[in-house]
Write a protein that binds this DNA or RNA. Structure first.
Ligand code: SF4
Ligand code: SF4
Lengths: 148, 148
DNA sequence: ATAAAAAAGGACAATTTTATCCGAATTAAG
DNA sequence: CTTAATTCGGATAAAATTGTCCTTTTTTAT
C-alpha cells in the first residue's frame, strides 16, 4: 500500500503539532491528554514521546505537573525533523522500488518522475514548520483527529 | 518510514515492467526468470504473480513452455492499475495522518500541501504506462535491479 | 498414455510494526 | 519524609507483512 508515514511517524507528527498548539501558553501536556487529543493509543504514544524526548525534540518532565513540551521554538522545528528522527536520515534516500541506491547513472524505469515526487515531498517537509501547522489548528481551520 | 510501496507492490511493478520488455517478442517468462530479472524472492513472487493473474492483469499458462505474459497492450496498462490491484482502490483516498477521510471541510494541518503531493503521485501513476517504463529498460537507459 | 514442466494453492515460518502492561525511577508538593 | 503524579524501561503480545516449502493440478511434448 502507499504509505507516506508509519504509525509511529504519524503519531509523532500529530503529537508535536499538538504540543505546538499549546506552546504559546508554555503549557506542558501529559501523555493521556496528548493521546486523547490526537486519537492515538496511549501506551504506544508513550514510547514515541520517549523517543522524541531522547532525541531532544521534546523535553519530558517527570512527576506531578510534569509532561512533555517542545524543546525549542515551534517555528524552528520542521516536519522533516520529526520524520528524520523517527526513521533516520536514510529515508529520503530510500527507494520506492527497493534499489540499494537511487542514482542518476543507474536509474529505475521511473526515475525522473519518482524523483520529482520525492523532492516535492521532501520540500514540503523541510519548509513546513510545526508552528505553521499548529497555527491552522489554533484558528479552527484544521484538525488533529478525523471525524468518526 | 516513508514507504511509497509495499514489497508486494514493488515486485509487482517490476515484474510487470519486465514482462513488458519482452512482450514485443510475445515471449512468456517463467517464474524463476522473472524473479531473477527483478531480484525478488521466488516463492513470494509466485504469490504476487498469481494475484496479478487472478485479477486479469496477467495471463498465466501452466505446463511446459508455460509462464506469465501480459494480458493486453503494454501501453494500456498504467502503473496506477498495478498499484490499485495490489492494494485496492481506497489507497489514493487513504490518509498520511490516519484520518478516516480526507476532506476539504475537515482538513488536517497540512491538507493542501499533502494533497498536492498525493495528486502528484496519482498523476504520475495514472499517466505512466508500463510500455513507457519498459521502453527505457529496453534501450538500456534504465534498470530493474539495483547495483549491488 | 506417460512423463516432465510449469503454475496454483495451502500451510507454515520469520520479521517488522503496532500495541499493551507493569514495575521502577523521578519529581513536586504538602 | 511521605505521598501522589508522572515519565521510563523492559517484557511481552497481537497483527500485518514478507517469505518459504511442499503437494496438487494443469498442460505440453513425446
Ligand atoms: S527514482 Fe527509482 S531508483 Fe530512485 S528512489 Fe525512486 S524508485 Fe528508487
Ligand atoms: S491531506 Fe491530511 S487529511 Fe488529507 S489525506 Fe493527507 S494527511 Fe490525511
Amino acid at each position: 500500500m502507499i504509505i507516506m508515514f508509519s504509525k509511529a511517524c504519524e503519531y509523532s507528527i500529530k503529537a508535536v503539532i499538538y504540543l505546538a498548539t499549546r506552546s504559546e501558553q508554555n503549557q506542558r501536556a501529559r501523555l493521556p491528554e496528548i493521546a486523547e487529543a490526537i486519537g492515538s493509543p496511549e501506551a504506544f504514544t508513550a514510547k514515541i514521546l520517549q523517543e522524541l524526548a531522547r532525541k531532544k525534540l521534546l523535553i519530558s518532565v517527570k512527576g506531578p505537573k510534569g509532561g512533555f513540551e517542545l524543546n525549542g521554538d515551534a517555528d524552528e522545528i520542521s516536519l522533516y525533523k520529526i520524520v528524520e528522527i523517527m526513521d533516520g536520515d536514510s529515508l529520503f534516500h530510500g527507494c520506492a522500488l527497493g534499489f540499494k541506491k537511487c542514482s542518476d547513472v543507474h536509474p529505475c524505469p521511473v526515475h525522473n518522475k519518482f524523483k520529482a515526487i520525492r523532492d516535492h515531498l521532501t520540500g514540503v517537509l523541510l519548509t513546513t514548520s510545526i508552528k505553521e501547522a499548529a497555527g491552522t489548528v489554533d484558528e479552527g481551520q484544521s484538525f488533529l483527529t478525523s471525524l468518526k
